[in-house]
Design a protein around this nucleic acid. Structure first.
Lengths: 321, 321
DNA sequence: GACAGCCGTGTAATCGATTAACTTCTCGTC
DNA sequence: GACGAGAAGTTAATCGATTACACGGCTGTC
C-alpha cells in the first residue's frame, strides 16, 4: 500500500479512501491511485483490514457432516445467500462429533468471523452458551439445543410425518419400525416422537447415528423383529436400510414398505421409487443466512420453521400399485 | 492480551512466549500467565497473529461444485489431512463457473491462505498463472490446465476405460454413446478420448456440463440416435442418464447398457446395480493436501496419478446375466 | 572482588490496513 | 482585503499479536 501511495504521489490515507469510496478524493487523484494500483497489481491485505475494522465479512458455518448431501445442499444455499450480500463462508465439518465441532467453532471465533451458523451435533447447550458469551451472533440450523436463546431455523416435519403415519396404518401396517437419529439431537428425537405419537405409540424405535452403516444395522434389527414397514429419519440411514433390504432380497413394498425423511435425487430411480418427506433444504440454508445477517446488523430475527412435504412415490404401497 | 499481561503481572512479550512455547519463561511465570488466560477466557486473535507472522495456517480449496458428491468427498479428505497437520481449510464453491472460480481464488489470496488447491473449471491457464505469479503455493486437483507448471493430483482412468470398452464391444455393442464433460476441461476431454480411442473411434459423443440435467438431455439425444450402450463420464450426468432411461421405460441392460465414471453409494441399490469406474476419491484429496503442504514447506512434490478401477455390477450385461 | 556469560523479562518496532484530527488551499462574501 | 467555510490531503494513532534487542541479576572463575 505504501508503494502504491508513493507511486501515485499521495499518502496511504488517500489510497485507502479511494479503495473504500470514502470521503471525496478528486477524480484526478482517484485516477492516479487506480492507475498505480493497476500497475503494481496491488491487492489489499484482508487480514490487516479486518484487524483494523473488526469485521471480516465472513460467516462461519459448522455442519454435522459434509458427506451428507442434505448438509452439502444447505452449505451451498448458505454460501449463495451470503455471497449475494458480500459475505464469504468458511465451512467447518464436525463429522457428527461434539468434540470436533467445538474445535471448529473455536477456530472460527479465533478468526473473528462476523457470525456463526451451527448445526449442533448434540443438544448440549454449553457450546452455544460459550459463543453467545463471546458476543458473536449465532444462528442454529436444522437442529436446536436445550434452552436455546438464539434464532433457530429448521424444517417442520410434523404434518408430513403425521400424514405418513396415517398412510401406513391405512395400508394395514401394524408393526412399524423407526430408524431414528441419535436421541441427544433434536431432530433425532423429535421426528420419531411426532411419528410414533401419530401412530399411537405402536412403533419400534432404533436409534442410529445419521450415517449409512447405522441405517443398515438398525434395519437388520427391525426386520428381524418382524416389522412390515420402515421409516428412516435421514437420507443416509435410509440408504443403509435400502441396502439391507436389497441384501436380504426383500421386495418393496410387498415384503416391506419404506419411507425416508429427506429427499435425494436418486430416490425416484429406485424400483419402486421411494416415498420421502422432502425438506426445503435450499430455503433453510438461505433463511439461516438471512437471519444471521440480520442479527449481525443488530436486528432480532424470529425463529424460522419451514414445513417439509410428504412425497408419495410407491415404496409404501400407495400410488400405482 | 494486554489484560492478561497485566493480570499476571508480566509483559505481553512474556504472554506471547508462554502461548508459543518460545524461549523459556520460568515454570512459575508460566503458571501465572496460564491462570490469567484461563480466568479471563482469553483467546488470541488469529488475524493479528497472521498479520505479524505472515502465516495463516489455512489452505484454500476451490472446488467445481459442492453438490457433486465426488467433490464433497474430496473436500472432506482434504480437510482431514490438513487438520491432522494443524491446518484449516476454507472451501470455495465455483459452481462450474470460471468467473466465480476467479472471484473465489482472489478472495482466498486476499485472506493470505498459505496455499491453494484448485479444481479448475476450464483448462485456461491464466488464473493459475496469476496465482503462481503471486508466489502462492498451488496444487491442481482432479483436473489440469494447459501447460500447467504446478503439481497436479488426479485419477488415471485409462486402464479402467479401456477395459470397459473391451467389455462393451465383447458384449456385442457397436453403437455406443458417450456422455462426456465439457470439452474445455481436461477430464471432459481425456476420459472420452481414451474411451473412444480404445473403441477404435466408433462412438457417438455428446458433451454435457457435469450436471444432472445435461446428462438427461445427452442420454435422450443418444438414445434417439439408436445407441445400445451409454457411458456417462461423471456421476451427476450418470444420474441424469438413468433418469431418462427410467422415464422411457427402457430395461437395463436388455434394452440399453450403462456404465458411469465415479462410484456413488446408491449405484449398487439400483436394479440391476450400476457398473462404474470407481475413483480413489479420498486418496486424491489426501494426496493433494499432502502435496500442497510439501510445497508450502519448500519441497517440490511430483504429480500424483491414482488409478481408477472398473467395478462390474450388471448394468452392462456382464455378471449374473 | 571483578568480570564474563547466561537466563528470564521488558521495551518498542513491526505487520498492513483504517480513520480521527489537523493542515493547507481555494473560494465566496461583505 | 480579511475572514470563514469547505474541500483535499497528510500525519500519526490504532487494531492485537510477534520478536529483535536491551537490561538486570545471578553464577562461576580467576
Amino acid at each position: 500500500m505504501k508503494d502504491v501511495a508513493q507511486h501515485a504521489g499521495v499518502s496511504t490515507a488517500t489510497v485507502s479512501r479511494v479503495l473504500n469510496g470514502h470521503a471525496a478524493p478528486t477524480p484526478e487523484t482517484r485516477e492516479r491511485v487506480l492507475a498505480a494500483i493497476e500497475e503494481l497489481g496491488y491487492r489489499p491485505n484482508a487480514l490487516a483490514r479486518s484487524l483494523r475494522t473488526t469485521s471480516t465479512q465472513t460467516l462461519g458455518l459448522v455442519i454435522s457432516d459434509l458427506l451428507n448431501p442434505f448438509f452439502a445442499e444447505i452449505a451451498r444455499a448458505v454460501e449463495d445467500e451470503a455471497r449475494s450480500h458480500g459475505y464469504c463462508v468458511v465451512i467447518g465439518n464436525a463429522d457428527e462429533s461434539a468434540e470436533q465441532e467445538a474445535t471448529y467453532v473455536r477456530t472460527l471465533l479465533d478468526r473473528r468471523v462476523d457470525g456463526l451458523l451451527l448445526c449442533p451435533a448434540t443438544d448440549d447447550p454449553s457450546l452455544v452458551r460459550e459463543v453467545s458469551a463471546g458476543g458473536v451472533p449465532l444462528v442454529l440450523l436444522d437442529r436446536t439445543v436445550r434452552g436455546a436463546t438464539c434464532p433457530v431455523v429448521r424444517a417442520d416435519g410434523s404434518e408430513a410425518l403425521t400424514a405418513l403415519a396415517r398412510r401406513l396404518v391405512g395400508a394395514g401396517h401394524s408393526r412399524i419400525g423407526v430408524i431414528a437419529g441419535p436421541p441427544d439431537t433434536s431432530t433425532g428425537r423429535e421426528r420419531s416422537d411426532v411419528f410414533t405419537g401419530a401412530l399411537g405409540g405402536a412403533a419400534q424405535i432404533v436409534h442410529g447415528d445419521f450415517r449409512q452403516e447405522s441405517g443398515s444395522q438398525a434395519a437388520a434389527k427391525l426386520i428381524d423383529d418382524g416389522v412390515t414397514a420402515l421409516v428412516a429419519m435421514d437420507n443416509l440411514m435410509g440408504l443403509g436400510a435400502l441396502g439391507e433390504i436389497k441384501a436380504r432380497g426383500l421386495r418393496i413394498p410387498h415384503d416391506i414398505a419404506i419411507a425416508v425423511f429427506d429427499d435425494q435425487p436418486w430416490f425416484p430411480l429406485l424400483d419402486p421409487p421411494i416415498t420421502v418427506i422432502a425438506q426445503p433444504t435450499v430455503e433453510m440454508g438461505r433463511a439461516a443466512a438471512r437471519s444471521l445477517l440480520a442479527l449481525i446488523n443488530g436486528q432480532q430475527p424470529d425463529d424460522v420453521r419451514l414445513s417439509a412435504k410428504l412425497v408419495l412415490r410407491g415404496s409404501c404401497g400407495e400410488a400405482e400399485l
